[in-house]
Write a protein that binds this DNA or RNA. Structure first.
Length: 969
RNA sequence: GCCGAGGUGGCGGAACUGGCAGACGCGCGCGACUCAAACUCGCGUGGGGUUAUACCCGUGUGGGUUCGAGUCCCACCCUCGGCACCA
């Protein structure tokens, strides 16, 4: 019976078989049949959000890669956890529902079903019994539970970790330790009383010498509301009125991470406005340091690590206090270059700074008010356009430079941002480009205080005819230091201090690193400054005025008190509502109106202990569910906790998920948030690893040609015809561009179409063959035929298409073929291990090409070949395995091992070089010694011709590789 | 401007710790099969040069180290991605 390679029938057959036999079921530690002796491998895909109608061929490239690896690892004897689920809450899913005017509950279900079907048709071997969806109440019950953990904890800086909030309360009540102005507890203080300042922040009692005075009150003097304010101000989840990103177009506020650089929403591209609103915040800033430091232990792409470092934005510097002339107040600044303090010739306050009114003089008041009004109405976009031109006005006030004692003018300018540092700077025009531009624009003095490096300084000093010498401490002596006029534009980098001495401290001649230490020591002695670390990272804005998200497990009492929902009452289910749409608005001053405010009163109002509570009406952002989903796969049906500890410990092991594959677009969103939550859970003892994802790979984008007409509008790529090298859409000639495949460029190719025509194994192989997994590469449907031909040759190598019978022989393979097999096993194994699927497949193609020449390929080669092909082409491999006479399934077959003894050949071909250029080849016995190899090389005709009688100098013999003869000229 | 990744045939891409540049695939050329085409199979395919050898050039550019450089070092150019008045 004729038996051609019918991919559709074969793929359908094996998918059904796998389903029926539970081939991809993953057993956990307490399942019967679980083999605890095997090592674990947890390989995870970033789960998709079911927002659209389906996938294009760019989406599954990461899924295929992890699937190949999962199959490979399974055959290598690992217990493999390779799950899939759906990130179904949040803006993407909700926007899709709004656009189609169907309830998200319905569209999400439809989209999940479509995607599940598409994923199945790609032959992806997930354990669907572990599938999760973030919208499932049994799932988001635990999302809410984690929120309660955050609410119920505070960050203890002395432990550098989160602890239950009860610990803090107890300690405060016992008076065991105080809390400083940043919220951190300080060691028990004997003399100083525990007290709280006017903003409710507990502080240590004032010390002598210049620290700003505070109103101090003891903990015991506080009433209940005040105490609650203090405690709530320390929680990892807290309510605060802060300037937020309000997006009326989406009807919600957004996290910083969700706003683009030009001040628009990442979703939908609506304008975003800054305005103060009371919102739930998560104290991710407490973890800024650990989030940076622990990056070093992760095997992640450098790009992602540097994006996270950049986003967290650690700066080491100093805080310095400047006295304001004629006023009580001081201006505090943060600087990374305290060593340039002597060059601070003016100060700048952000226009919103609270001290602007204090320092502004009567004559300047009108101008200052006008400037403040002007900047407050300017959007971020406008400010960016004017980036290059510095603007600002003088306040008329003066401050005292603590190092020089000089009077320096105070200005306001919008190049100083209220949101970073203290909202005020000391301006050193000679040491900072921005200050320099500002000083030039407003004719402010420029005093150079740093010169480029020792070497430069010596050179200039010598040219000026001055003596150059080092003193005992290695500092250049002051008597030959250069004058400002020799380097009038200043110097921004690190170098050597100049013009920086006041009789008490001198930075002159010191390199920047030392100068920083010296000046900070001096400042600290006088209590006018100290070292400080600043971060760009802000706390995470966690409320959304949207319907389609997890409700907060929070109740608000009649007097504004907050009451967390009892753990046993979770989940707080999202109430069914037909009118789920957000109230969007064009008016930036419109009020947010959360859809849950229209929920029935029976949901909104809860009576407990005779008190009437209102539920929190905001919902969580879409990142909430994805912050911990990798933990739920481990034990998805556990009703008592997020995962049983023994399951969690087994699958997370000592470093977490072994491999995580997904798009680079989550570099500072999901990946940062998930690390933060994980660390909180770690601190509280709920997980056993410090980091969630040990290794990360970002799959590259698939690019495809896109076509634009002369109006600049993209036309559907699949309707464009090519004639004579030109492209036409109908009768219109269109231009070709190359870009990321997707809806916006109208250049999508769907996997369904490729699967129907060529088969899913072919698609899998092609996507893996295109190039390295982490590289973006162009899609080219035309190239698929190469894979089709390969699989057809494999098929014909195993069986006779006419009879349908296997044609393999039981004879031993030739020595050459056997050697090729073992080389291939080694290459393929290493390549799979390193996720180099393109070169693994190239090796398989090479071996197969050798087999094509044989009438009846040996079983001893074919069988390991089919096993090695199985991770890439599981359906065909199953079919061939059956034809070869084995019962299914090939997925459980042990992986072949290469035999190093079989790799050794009897003879070796060596390259002959003369002066490094290839001039011939010789074949020598593998065990030939150096002398005989050298003699054979010198006897070679090509070598002799090129030596041309010249005397032989050195002869380099690289064993097994080459002989290079160096001729003396 | 700063940070990160990367520049190799007509195209996608190979090349272990420095050791025959271009594996494998597409495309292309020639041939076989065919009435013909497609499929399939065989041979060839970096550029120059030669009937064919020989030989010369060649991994973004310019230097350097080395017996030998795509690979290491220095300087620069370009592309892609991220950040961007962060003090």
């Amino acid at each position: 019976m004729a038996r051609t390679y019918d991919h559709n029938a074969i793929e359908a057959k094996w998918r059904a078989w796998w389903d029926e036999h539970g081939t991809y079921r993953t057993l956990g530690p307490d399942d019967p049949g679980f083999d605890a002796s095997r090592p674990k491998f947890y390989v995870l895909d970033m789960f998709p959000y079911p927002s659209g109608k389906g996938l294009h061929v760019g989406h599954p490239i990461g899924y295929i890669a992890t699937d190949v690896l999962a199959r490979f690892k399974r055959m290598r004897g690992f217990n493999v956890l390779h799950p899939m689920g759906f990130d179904a809450f949040g803006l993407p899913a909700e926007q899709f529902a709004i656009e189609h005017n169907i309830h998200p509950r319905i569209t999400v279900q439809q989209n999940i079903e479509t995607m599940r079907r598409q994923l199945r048709e790609l032959g992806l071997g997930y354990d669907w019994q572990r599938e999760i969806a973030t919208i499932d109440p049994a799932y988001y019950r635990w999302t809410q539970w984690i929120f309660l953990q955050l609410y119920g904890s505070w960050f203890d800086p002395s432990a550098n970790a989160a602890r239950p909030i009860g610990d803090l309360i107890a300690a405060l009540e016992r008076g065991e330790f105080a809390v400083d102005e940043t919220g951190g507890p300080v060691a028990a203080l004997e003399r100083e009383e525990l007290a709280v300042d006017e903003t409710g922040v507990p502080v240590a009692a004032d010390s002598e010498g210049g620290r700003p005075t505070r109103v101090l009150r003891a903990w015991s003097e506080l009433d209940e509301d005040e105490r609650r304010a203090v405690i709530d101000g320390r929680r990892l989840a807290y309510l605060a009125e802060v300037p937020v990103n309000w997006c009326p177009g989406l009807g919600t506020v957004l996290a910083n991470e969700e706003v683009t650089a030009d001040g628009r929403s990442e979703r939908g591209n609506f304008p975003v406005y800054r305005r103060p609103l009371e919102q739930w915040m998560l104290r991710i800033t407490a973890y800024a340091d650990r989030l940076i430091v622990d990056l070093d232990r992760l095997e992640w792409p450098e790009a992602v690590k540097s994006m996270q470092r950049n986003w967290i934005g650690r700066s080491d510097g100093a805080r310095i206090r400047f006295k304001v002339e004629g006023a009580e107040q001081v201006i505090e600044v943060f600087t990374t270059r305290p060593d340039t303090l002597f060059g601070a010739t003016y100060m700048v306050l952000a226009p919103e700074h609270t001290l602007v009114d204090v320092v502004t003089g009567e004559t300047e008041r009108a101008a200052v008010e006008a400037y403040r009004a002007q900047t407050s109405h300017r959007s971020d976009v406008d400010r960016q356009v004017e980036l290059k031109e510095k603007t600002g006005v003088s306040t008329g006030g003066y401050a005292i430079n603590p190092a020089t004692g000089g009077r320096i003018p105070i200005w306001i300018a919008d190049y100083v941002l209220m949101g970073y540092g203290t909202g005020a700077i000391m301006a050193v025009p000679a040491g900072d480009h921005r200050d320099f531009e500002f000083a030039i624009a407003f004719d402010l003095p420029i005093v150079p205080v740093v010169m480029p490096g020792d070497g430069w300084l010596r050179e200039m000093a010598e040219r000026a005819g001055r003596r150059v010498d080092l003193d005992d401490a290695g500092a250049l002596r002051a008597d030959y230091l250069l004058h400002a006029d020799e380097y009038p534009e200043g110097f921004v980098g690190e170098g050597t201090g100049v013009n920086s001495a006041n009789g008490q401290v001198s930075l002159d001649g010191w390199p920047t690193s030392v100068a920083k230490r010296r000046i900070v020591d001096w400042l600290e002695e006088r209590v006018i400054g100290h070292t400080e670390v600043q971060y760009k990272l802000r706390d995470w804005l966690f409320s959304r005025q949207r319907y389609w998200g997890e409700p907060f497990p929070i109740l608000h009492g009649p007097n504004g008190e907050i009451r967390p929902v009892d753990e046993d009452d979770l989940p707080v289910e999202l109430p069914p509502m037909d009118d789920f749409k957000p109230r969007s608005d064009d008016d930036p001053d419109a009020k947010p109106r959360p859809p849950l405010s229209r929920a029935p009163e029976s949901w909104r109002v809860v009576e407990l202990d005779g008190v009437r509570y209102e539920r929190e009406l905001n919902t969580m952002p879409n990142w909430a569910g994805s912050c911990w989903y990798y933990l739920r796969y481990i034990d998805p049906e556990n009703e008592g906790r997020i995962a049983a500890p023994e399951h969690e410990a087994y699958w997370m092991g000592d470093h977490g998920v072994d491999l995580y594959v997904g798009g680079v677009e989550h570099a500072v969103l999901h990946l940062l948030y998930a690390r933060f939550w994980h660390k909180v859970l770690y601190d509280l003892g709920h997980v056993s690893t410090v980091e969630p994802f040990a290794r990360l790979i970002n799959q590259g984008y698939i690019q495809a040609p896109a076509f634009v007409d002369d109006r600049g509008v993209y036309v559907p790529a699949d309707e464009v015809k090519e004639r004579d090298g030109k492209h036409f859409f109908g009768a219109v000639e269109v231009a070709v561009e190359f870009g990321k495949m997707g809806k916006s460029l109208k250049n999508m190719v769907t996997p369904d179409a490729i699967v129907a025509r060529s088969g899913c194994d072919t698609l899998r192989l092609y996507e893996m063959y295109m190039g390295p997994i982490d590289q973006s590469k162009p899609w080219n449907t035309r190239d698929i035929v190469g894979i089709t031909r390969f699989l057809a040759r494999v098929w014909r190598n195993v069986l006779d298409v006419e009879s349908g019978e296997a044609i393999v022989s039981d004879a031993a393979p030739s020595a050459e073929l056997e050697r090729a097999l073992h080389l291939t096993i080694r290459r393929v194994t290493e390549d799979y291990e390193q996720l180099r699927f393109n070169t693994a497949l190239a090796a398989l193609i090479e071996l197969n090409n050798m087999l094509v020449a044989l009438d009846s390929p040996p079983r001893a080669v074919i069988e390991p070949f089919v096993i090695m092909l199985a991770p890439l082409a599981p359906h065909m491999a199953e079919e061939l395995w059956e034809i070869l006479g084995h019962p299914p399934s090939i997925t459980q077959q042990p992986w072949p091992e290469h035999d190093p003894a079989k790799l050794v050949a009897d003879t070796l071909e060596l390259v002959l070089q003369v002066n490094g250029k290839v001039r011939g080849h010789i074949t020598v016995p593998a065990n030939a010694d150096r002398d005989s190899v050298e003699a054979a090389a010198l006897a070679d005709e090509g070598v002799r011709r090129h030596l041309d009688g010249a005397p032989v100098g050195k002869v380099i013999v690289v064993p097994g590789k080459l002989v290079n003869i160096v001729a003396n000229q």
